[in-house]
Amino acid sequence: MCFASCGKEPDGKYVGEIFDWESEVFQARSLRIEGQDYFLQLILRQVGQEMPAELLFRQQKTNKEKLRTGTWRMGDGKRVIAFPDGKEVQEYFLYKKGSRFVLEDRWGLVDDNGSMFVLIRNKGKSRKRSFPITFTFDSDGEAHFTSQALPKGISGEWQMIDKRVAASFLDVGTGERQKYFLFWKGDHLAIEKLTMYLPFFHKYYVRLPDEAKASGPFFAKELREGFDSGRFGERHEASHDNQTWIPIEKVKGFEPGSRRLKRKNWMYHTVFDDPPVLKPR
């Protein structure tokens, strides 16, 4: 049913709250590895700016457990989970596949049957948190968005698409773009879908011309910081693939204010089962 407000243009300020995962618990209840049955549990948390991770393996016959602790971050369409292992760091990758999640490493994780490690999110043990958000729509098509993560807000634009409101905001500092699709629910707006566009920039290995082993990889900004601190010099070379080398000062984005070389954009969609409602203020 279409209300009288269906398809009307928004005007002014709308406030509400949105939910995000505070801790996510992923489990594989039975994995057959080297003839033994294991229970696996992965916990990813967001605690302020910190993002701790825990990986638990439990042998089901003996209940012997191995717990690893580390950190996680959003990667190129995957969650990247890092665990210190002596002087090295072991990385795992978690990505969604249908309604489930796949956990893998650089060499490929498989059980005795050759199947991937498939996990499910335990919604009963996972926890969400809410935080306030505010949209402001101007009649000239400009928009403003504030949230707990962006208290100063970011500006953008809005337009009507098929009787729905599409609002797009760009964080100039990170290059991240958020696009919200909203529909009318009486006199209130509800968020139907959120699309995130996150750019990924090249990282570079660094070496001296007579060195066989390179260090890195580093972002262009980190190269500049290393150069300014004296760690790198004019003789250093850089390469994003460990094959083609250029002078470090020729790297795009090396000079402050210059544009970095972008590898590609990662796009992620969130469709809300229970759409957050925004009330006019």
Rank of each mutant, 00 (worst) to 15 (best):
C2E: 14
A4Y: 07
A4V: 12
D11F: 14
D11Q: 11
Q27C: 12
S30W: 14
S30T: 09
S30M: 11
L31D: 01
I33V: 15
E50K: 15
P52M: 02
K61A: 13
R68I: 01
G75C: 02
I81T: 00
F83S: 05
D85Y: 08
Q90W: 15
R100P: 00
L103S: 01
N122K: 04
K125N: 13
K128A: 03
R129T: 09
F137S: 05
F137A: 01
H144V: 04
T146C: 01
A149K: 06
K163L: 14
D171M: 03
G173R: 08
T174F: 01
F183L: 07
W184S: 02
W184Y: 06
H188D: 15
H188I: 04
A190M: 11
L194Q: 12
L194I: 10
T195W: 03
F200M: 14
F201L: 05
F201K: 07
R207L: 02
L208F: 05
K221Q: 14
R224T: 00
E225S: 08
E234T: 09
A238Y: 02
S239N: 06
H240N: 12
N242M: 09
Q243D: 13
W245I: 10
G253N: 03
G253V: 07
G257H: 12
K264Q: 06
W266T: 13
Y268N: 05
L278I: 06
K279D: 00
